[in-house]
Amino acid sequence: MEKITEHTAHVHRDDEGDKLGMWLFIFTELLLFGMLFLIYAVYRYKNPVAFQLGGEELDVFLGTLNTVILLISSATVAMSITAMQKGEKTKALILLGTTLFIAVVFLINKWFEWGAKIDYGLYPNSENLLELGHGTTLFFGLYYVMSGIHALHILIGIGLFVFVYRQIMVNKINKTDYVWLENVGLYWHLVDLIWIFLFPLFYLIH
């Protein structure tokens, strides 16, 4: 994946190997979030009513909006890979820029969503929350932790997009060597994948 290094002189390029490495990294992420889902499952099993009431507090509209735009951003990054493979650099940049823009919008939505909750006094260890009982405390605890870690991944994704965008500008990523773009794309789909499960588990509890 890298070019020359001081002590290892052999330059070997292995896109397939790089992708395998990325997939292995994705597996670590899946298990990391997997454990959060496991915690969620245990506590929801123990506090079904509190979780339902907690879920009804969340804004389904904002949640759905974020789901849809995240799906669109996944599609645009996938399309930008197609564009790169076809050598259409400008198109690739536009599509990547769109993805980047949507990622920022997602975080802005999140900001408002969290802000509203915090205004209500619903945040970890707040008096309001503790009064609502154990189940609700756990629900919102998990809500903040899980969507927070997810948002952190979005933030990292934004960083990666900026990096890849620059690499395309200077032709480091090009028609024949685009594995970085592919791997960042894979990362972004992972972020989407996690959200696909977060969304019904928090916003659509009935």
Partner: peptide, 14 residues
């Protein structure tokens, strides 16, 4: 740091 309560029995955690 934040008192999320996930493992804290006093807050419902296990």
């Amino acid at each position: 740091v934040m008192g999320v309560g996930i493992f804290n029995p006093a807050m419902g955690g296990d």
